[in-house]
Computed example of a mutant assay.
Amino acid sequence: MKDWMDFNGDREVDSTERFFADEMLCSSREEHIALFGDAGDFGEEVDEDEEKEDDLMYAGLDRDDLEMMEPEERREALEEAGLDPDDYDFD
């Protein structure tokens, strides 16, 4: 069975492949700092509002359209898209 860390397919896992595999398995900023001494991809703080806008976009929803909806209709649309309506403020 092929080792999943053998990225180049030479049937040997070298130090570079092990490094990339370890980095891929990091699940938090703290873990990345402990293993590699830097924050890696976890270095940038994520703007929650920007992340929420991205979630709307990926769900195929438009913020302007949602703002024009009645509150109950908007709640339904967000729930159908798998998003928590309580995470969004449309006041």
Rank of each mutant, 00 (worst) to 15 (best):
1 M>S: 13
2 K>C: 08
2 K>N: 10
3 D>T: 01
5 M>A: 07
5 M>F: 00
5 M>K: 03
6 D>G: 05
6 D>Y: 04
8 N>F: 01
8 N>A: 10
9 G>W: 06
9 G>K: 01
10 D>L: 06
10 D>I: 01
11 R>A: 14
12 E>Y: 06
13 V>R: 07
14 D>E: 13
14 D>R: 06
15 S>I: 09
15 S>R: 08
17 E>F: 03
18 R>Y: 13
18 R>T: 09
18 R>S: 13
20 F>T: 06
20 F>C: 09
20 F>P: 05
20 F>Q: 11
20 F>W: 09
21 A>H: 13
22 D>I: 15
22 D>P: 09
23 E>G: 10
25 L>R: 10
26 C>Y: 12
26 C>T: 09
28 S>F: 10
29 R>K: 04
30 E>T: 08
30 E>M: 10
30 E>I: 02
31 E>G: 04
32 H>N: 15
36 F>P: 05
36 F>Q: 15
37 G>S: 12
38 D>L: 13
38 D>S: 09
38 D>Q: 10
38 D>H: 06
41 D>N: 14
42 F>I: 12
44 E>S: 11
44 E>Y: 07
45 E>H: 11
45 E>G: 11
45 E>N: 12
45 E>F: 12
45 E>S: 14
46 V>Y: 14
46 V>C: 12
48 E>C: 12
49 D>R: 02
51 E>C: 06
52 K>N: 06
52 K>C: 08
53 E>T: 02
54 D>E: 14
55 D>N: 01
55 D>R: 01
56 L>F: 00
57 M>S: 09
58 Y>N: 15
58 Y>G: 14
58 Y>I: 15
58 Y>V: 12
58 Y>S: 15
59 A>N: 07
60 G>E: 14
65 D>C: 10
65 D>A: 12
66 L>G: 04
66 L>F: 08
67 E>C: 08
68 M>I: 05
68 M>E: 15
68 M>C: 09
68 M>F: 08
69 M>G: 06
69 M>L: 07
70 E>G: 10
71 P>A: 02
72 E>P: 04
72 E>H: 09
73 E>V: 02
73 E>H: 03
75 R>K: 08
77 A>Q: 09
78 L>C: 06
78 L>F: 03
78 L>P: 00
80 E>P: 00
81 A>R: 03
81 A>V: 01
83 L>N: 02
84 D>S: 05
85 P>N: 08
87 D>I: 02
87 D>Y: 02
88 Y>F: 05
88 Y>H: 00
89 D>I: 02
91 D>F: 07
